[in-house]
Structure formats: structure tokens, C-alpha cells
Amino acid sequence: MKLARFTHSGKTSIGKVVGDTIIDLSSVPGVGSSMSQLIGDLPHLRPALEAATEPALPLGAVHLETPVNDPQKFLAIGMNYRKHAEEARAAGIPIPTSQFWFNKQVSCLNGPYDPVEKPDVSEKVDYEIELGVVIGKRCRHVNREEARGVIAGYLIVNDVSARDWQHRSPTFTLGKSFDTHGPVGPWLTTDDEIADPLQLEMRLTVNGEERQRSSTADMIYDIYDQIAYLSTVMTLMPGDILATGTPAGVGAAMNIFLKPGDVMHLSIDGLGHIENRVVSTSEIAAAF
């Protein structure tokens, strides 16, 4: 299934994407407004969700929202693709010798087609395409061999980064957490629809120019290693989002950064695409 949050006629609901339509699941017993809660209840709710066929709306008639709007955690791993690590090394950035995790504050979550702010206080805003893994059940001390069993599904993450702010803080958190700097989507594709999440092609363009193209096979620590490592430290909860690393081709490696008017288009095999236009702080302010 492809589970989404959408707004139509001023109401935001949870739906199921089927082809070029979205089926409103609001009337299914147990489906509320929390995607994280639905994810936690998915084994119980799945038969009713799969059986729902109406009401159906044209996908083009709704506004897709952040698929998971209420995760407890939004975590990301740094320099986890071999070629990206090489370009970082060439730029004089030390390469971690173990998994390197940081927080993206959940307040930065953004819709799959919503604008991304280029803050006035940053001159080095960058893009990063990443495979997002969404946790499906409360878990701790997960073995690598069991890790796929705790995954609800996948989505695309644009780990937008204010590089100048990122490098002011050893934790990266501030530079990774500006409002709007966490577009995800376009929907949550459940795990059963993806044959092998370690063999997915990913591609990012800026204004139609290809900047990143790779495969999730290039990860240094794959998603199962990541879940085992993180769950050694903390309890993972339904709806938690893990951004699993970006491949080579980031703007920082070329000293080319985003500016208002730029359009980022991100796609991953089997997951669809998201697209975000960069806007100025004044444009964002005007929308409030």
C-alpha cells in the first residue's frame, strides 16, 4: 500500500494511493489523524485498509502533506555512501570510523511538494536525496537479521542542509533543522511493495540538471545495520523516520548552493518522486 496524508476542501485526512486516485480512509474504523498511530496498528488495520475502495478522489485534486506528521524521532546518518565519503575526504572532511548519527528536529518536516526556505542567515543551503525508513513497531535491541521485520515502509527524504550552520555545531543539529528543511514523501510505501530496499536507484536534479544518481547498494552501513545500531541505544517507535545517507554529488562538493527559484526533483525506484522549490525567507513569511 501507499499511505498518504492529504488535504481536500480544507480537511486533512489519511488516504491510500491507487494509481492516479487517492481513497479517503477516514471512515475506516481505527483510522484517525495520526499516521504514527496508524502505522503502529497496521497489522490489525491492514485488511480493512486494503478492502477500502471509496470515497476516491483524483490525486491531482488534493494537496499531499507530510506522510508522517508526528514521528517521535527524525534521525539521519552522515557520510554513509562510499562515493560521498570519498568526495568528503577530498574536501578535507574527516571520515567517521563508525556510524555517525544526528538529529533533524521534527519541526523541519515538510510536504513532498512544498517550498523549502533559503534562510537569509545562510548562504550555503544544500540538497541531499536519501532513502527514508519508517519504523513500524516499538523495538529495542534489534538483531540485524530481525531488522526488516520492524520496518513499516519507505519514503523519499530531502535532507536539506544549511552547511554554514551545520559546521558551527559538532552535532550538526542546527544546520539540519531549519523549518521546511525536511521534505519527505510523497507517501509511505509499505515494506511488502519493495522487493529489495538495498537495490534502489535514486536520482536528484536541480532545475533539470542531474546532480546525484546512485543506488542504495552503495551504502557503507545498510539499513539493517543502522536499525541494529540505533536500537542498541534507544527504543525506536512506530513512525520514527531514519534518513539513511546521501550519495555523491552534493552541492558542497562543488561549492554550488541553492538559491531562491531553484527546483529540486528527487526520485527513488518504487517510491515515486518529490519536488521542492526554493524560496526566500520573505516569501515564506508572506505565506503565514
Rank of each mutant, 00 (worst) to 15 (best):
P197Y: 07
R277K: 15
T66V: 14
E117A: 10
F74G: 03
V233Q: 15
Q199Y: 08
A152M: 09
G10S: 12
G208P: 13
S26H: 12
G60V: 02
S282F: 10
E54V: 08
S36H: 14
G40I: 02
I223R: 09
I39Q: 10
D218S: 10
E193N: 03
E87W: 06
I93M: 14
V106A: 01
V233R: 15
N103Y: 14
A51R: 07
H167Q: 05
G251A: 12
A195H: 04
A4R: 07
L174H: 01
P115F: 07
P94F: 06
E146A: 06
A51Y: 02
T97P: 00
G19C: 00
G60H: 02
R89H: 11
S177Y: 07
Y221S: 12
M35E: 05
I223Q: 11
I39M: 10
P96F: 15
H44V: 14
P186H: 01
E117G: 03
F172R: 13
P55C: 01
V62N: 00
S9A: 15
K176F: 08
Y81R: 08
K16A: 05
H44D: 07
G32T: 08
S107T: 13
Y127L: 10
L230A: 13
E50M: 08
T244A: 00
E50Y: 07
Q37S: 08
A85F: 04
S177C: 08
A243H: 03
K124D: 02
Q212S: 10
G30C: 11
F74K: 03
G185F: 03
A4N: 07
H44K: 15
L204D: 02
K124Y: 12
